[in-house]
Design a protein around this nucleic acid. Sequence first.
DNA 1: AGTATGACTCATT
DNA 2: AAATGAGCCATAC
Length: 127
Amino acid sequence: MQRKKNTISSEFPVTDSSKNYTFFENVWDVVRQIPEGRVTTYGAIANYLGTKSSARMVGYAMNSSFGLMPKVPAQRVVNRNGILSGKAHFATSTLMEELLQKEGIQVEDDKIVNFTNVFWDPSIELA
DNA sequence: AGTATGACTCATT
DNA sequence: AAATGAGCCATAC
């Protein structure tokens, strides 16, 4: 079955029509809109952006999101099982979990407790 | 300039 | 049920 190609440049406005460099920025914009106390997944963001097979790129965008202004709450993005797969990329191995718990999200064994209830789907919430 | 490598996910063995 | 392959595309080397 043929998968849809990445057509993000035609589905979202780009400031530079010669280059499709907006994917990361789109990702960061979505992540900035995740409310405190909620989390979403790489795949959900990719899906919202119209490129559901680009979940990996979302993770990569997170890796490039440190130090950005306005800040990107990268700790609110986990994998589809609610596991903190990106925690190793924070300053310390416990920082991601600490940030989440400070926002009222419970984490146990690197996994979000009650994940389905705190899950925030941009495709629904930003519809 | 080509190859390798990911904070992922899904379909297919 | 576990492993593998494929698609994604920006970076690093």
